[in-house]
Design a protein around this nucleic acid. Structure first.
Lengths: 325, 325
DNA sequence: CTCGACGCATAACACGCCGTTATATGGTGT
DNA sequence: ACACCATATAACGGCGTGTTATGCGTCGAG
């Protein structure tokens, strides 16, 4: 029945003492005020102004509206300001979820970058494996997830989730082979042929990584003998170092938690996991989320972290494989 | 940029958890909500809801709007309620101004009637002679004035004021003649011929009453010898009782402040003053003012006060003139 | 796994609010 | 008395905001 515009007009009339004054104060024409008051009067059913001669005065009801205008309009301004602050990156919150090995360098650097640029954006971080982080995204429990997908195999499986989500590629993470130093292939150069490891004992990582291992070995023509499974890649490397088996291990993990007692080599057929940022189409357009996303992309693209992701294979420098030697 | 309707929608979405729920809660159709949200989003420049699958969730900005909605809308409701109370006679104030001799019976009875019917209407009363009360009306210092005009002569003079004001006739007040008991005409019956008093000493009342005296005497063919002037009709009657002169005195005054030591008789040519309620066209439509006006009219029309005003002369009962005898 | 129900988005359309300019009317002061 | 100033009215245009009809995608159940 009564809206903010009406209150604004009534307040301006009270302050200016005339329709014309109110009109100029609000940037309207005089008839606009005249009609607005008339509409308000026939809505409320009672006169709001007392027109005597060429002067207008507020009636009791009109004065009541003008008096309430301050309360309503300042509350409205507060609401607008809060939204404007969120839109203008002067406020806001981003709930980020990432898998453990991304938490080491990628996420901290991105968080620092966002904090640097927009000190008023508060960022919270949760560690979660891709399946859970995407579930959290869908459940509205986080705004941005750093996840990975193994190129080729379970990308199709993820598409079930990814169709309603938007993804931004961050890094291409080469999958390498970890061998005990005593292994017969530990001292060669170049890539190790996966088929040469058909009879090895295998140590698998997280469930998805295990799935990828099975896929790759299948392509190489054998089924791996998986002796151990653990999500902890420190443990994986420990197991390998102890000579209990070999393991596929992503480059990013090696770079962050490297055990000097294992040998890392490239493997053929080459394989990688794609690390990407995931969010919903709507959240993608939230300025704070967009800023965090861009920071992630920048950090991922910076040469002091890892090779850029979307470039073609030729432009990607060879991974330094001499971790050990 | 943001209006109350938008906040109402956002709050409903927050409470109901879906567009459809919000729509039914607000009595709208579902697309109305959908479009409203879209408009708000493109106005604020940031997503307000996160649509994932067939569920919607508020973003931070949307939640901010929903959170502010309570403040704004309750303030708006308070404003509406206050106006509604004024329109519904559950609140309000009427500032009444009346000339002294109306304050005796007409005004108190009307005030009592209003208080009876609408206990929450506060009425204030100021005593003022017609010129000042009309000035107060024009100056916005009162809402309703009880004034009088002498029929015929200064009605034209008042029209200058009365054109922008609206009047409601209340009473016709016969103008009578007050004589000392010792006067040669004190014992007759019927009306006294004004021309028979051409050589008397005259006592005049308020300035407007004095003007009316001059007009009447002029019509009767003489110019009165005005010996005293006072606005106090108690004094007028005292002067007459002391034999210092004769005076024209309205019936209403005699009825309220009658000095038994004077004789009151009708006079020819007959004359009267019209007592009327005056306000502005706008204030006339303010419910509280209208209620006060109606109360005044009812009191004026009630037979236990004085004869009705607008009736023709035939229907007006003869004034009781035997105040003294 | 398919099907039906549910919820949001979009299209097309109608109405009324709310501005505008042009003009009339009436009060005020020199 | 006349010019100025303030409000009222008329006519008109835009768009905000509702409607119904319809499509599409998702979630749950047989």
């Amino acid at each position: 029945m009564i809206d903010a515009a009406g209150l604004r007009v009534m307040r301006a009339i009270a302050e200016q003492g005339s329709f014309t004054g109110a009109a100029t104060a609000l940037g309207y024409s005089q008839p606009a005020i005249s009609q607005m008051v008339r509409r308000l009067e026939q809505r409320t059913g009672t006169p709001l102004v007392d027109r005597v001669g060429r002067t207008v005065r507020l009636t009791e009801a009109g004065a009541a509206l003008a008096r309430h205008a301050g309360t309503v309009l300042s509350a409205l301004d507060a609401a607008e300001e809060e939204v404007s602050a969120i839109a203008g990156l002067r406020a806001g919150r981003v709930r980020l979820a990432a898998f453990p090995s991304a938490s080491a360098t990628l996420v901290p650097k991105a968080l620092a970058l966002v904090r640097d640029r927009f000190p008023d954006i508060s960022m919270t971080f949760t560690e979660a494996e891709p399946p859970e982080s995407l579930a959290a995204l869908r459940a509205g429990e986080c705004d941005l997830a750093v996840a990975f997908t193994y190129a080729g195999d379970d990308l199709a499986a993820d598409s079930e989730d990814l169709d309603v989500l938007v993804t931004e590629p961050l890094l291409r993470d080469e999958v390498l082979i970890a061998l005990p130093p005593s292994h017969r292939l530990a001292r060669g150069t170049g890539a190790v042929d996966l088929a040469d490891l058909a009879t090895e004992h295998w140590i698998a990582g997280c469930p998805r990584c295990r799935g990828h291992l099975l896929t790759m070995c299948d392509q190489a023509g054998f089924s791996p003998d998986v002796s151990f499974e653990t999500e902890d890649y420190v443990a994986v490397q420990g197991l390998v170092a102890a000579g209990l088996g070999v393991a596929l291990i992503p480059d990013l993990i090696v770079r962050t938690t490297y055990n000097p007692d294992v040998v890392i080599r490239q493997v053929t057929p080459a394989s990688r996991r794609d690390i990407l940022a995931v969010t919903t189409p709507d959240l993608r357009r939230v300025p704070a989320v967009a800023a965090a996303l861009e920071a992630l992309a920048e950090v991922a693209a910076s040469p002091d972290l890892l090779p850029t992701f979307p470039g073609d294979a030729a432009s990607v420098p060879e991974p330094e494989l001499d971790y050990h030697l």
